[in-house]
């Protein structure tokens, strides 16, 4: 397929919808076509660029598809063990309180193996930003059931769909962390449409602004897709996400500071 596409035919001024952020590196992304990680990386980079905090930002990558995020963002980054990003972030922020610290984690990382670190960092009110990509699946290991896999959803370990009687219920981490006193701003967004991208970018910007004011943990869930893991085309996956994921994981703010 790729042999038939000449990249130069696509990369033309009239086709460009936005400029590559100066906080992005030149490395080619490894993400599958249609995956939400690339868009999310781009808007994180844009916010860092627009706030002029490239020198002051330290990111922590998870284990999962986005483990290599450090190849794409031109900032200092640390790669955590599976689920432990909030523990690293806790130490980094406490040792370098003037820096902006964020974690970037998938659903398996944040809501299964790293549940304790997530809950306790949020409960302590660590002054960090947690970006939580929820695509309901373990993408990197080949599409197994995640803690967020919705009822009936097929995965490589729920080949007949998630049976909640047998496999338990999907976990709504964002709802949980919003109840904790340490969180300051908790929201659930998506990046599947330009309008949603803009909203999510605004949320990331807000979270970094709150971090400057030492307000506590900011938590942004991004409901996303996994075309390869879901075995769908990018368009199908976004439609499926809207029809099936959004009813269970409705977009919107969970905890908004009183202005």
């Amino acid at each position: 397929m790729t042999d038939n596409i000449n990249i130069q035919d696509i990369v033309k001024t009239e086709n460009l919808v936005h400029k590559k952020s100066s906080v992005m590196t030149e490395n080619t992304m490894h993400y599958c076509p249609g995956c939400g990680h690339g868009t999310t990386h781009q808007i994180v980079a844009e916010v860092i660029e627009e706030m002029g905090i490239q020198q002051d930002t330290i990111g922590i990558t998870p284990v999962g598809c986005s483990v290599l995020m450090y190849n794409y963002l031109d900032i200092d980054m640390q790669e955590a063990a599976h689920g432990r990003a909030p523990a690293l972030a806790t130490a980094i922020k406490r040792l370098l309180p003037e820096k902006f610290v964020f974690t970037y984690q998938g659903d398996g990382d944040l809501a299964a193996i790293g549940t304790a670190e997530t809950i306790h960092s949020c409960n302590r009110g660590e002054n960090i930003l947690i970006i939580f990509i929820n695509n309901g699946i373990y993408g990197m290991t080949g599409g197994q059931m995640a803690p967020t896999t919705i009822e009936g959803m097929k995965s490589s370990t729920t080949p007949y769909g998630r049976d909640v009687k047998l496999m338990g219920n999907p976990l709504k981490m964002t709802d949980i962390v919003a109840t904790l006193p340490g969180t300051y701003y908790v929201t659930r967004q998506s990046v599947h449409k330009p309008g949603n991208v803009r909203k999510t970018k605004k949320a990331i910007r807000k979270a970094f602004e709150y971090q400057k004011l030492n307000k506590g943990t900011c938590f942004i869930e991004i409901v996303s897709n996994c075309p390869s893991g879901w075995k769908m085309t990018p368009v199908e996956s976004n439609e499926w996400m809207e029809q099936n994921m959004f009813p269970f994981y409705p977009l919107g703010d969970f905890k908004v500071p009183e202005e």
Binding site: I58, I60, Q78, A80, A81, R84, A87, L88, A89, T90, A91, I92, R94, L95, L96, A116, E117, I119, H120
Partner: peptide
């Protein structure tokens, strides 16, 4: 000096990992 009681030994060593990555004596 930062002193923090972590939620587990697992969290504590990963805090050490994060702090050590910043070049600090942890």
């Amino acid at each position: 000096m930062v002193v923090l009681q972590a939620e587990s030994e697992v969290a504590a060593i990963n805090m050490v990992y994060g702090g050590a990555g910043c070049g600090k004596k942890v």
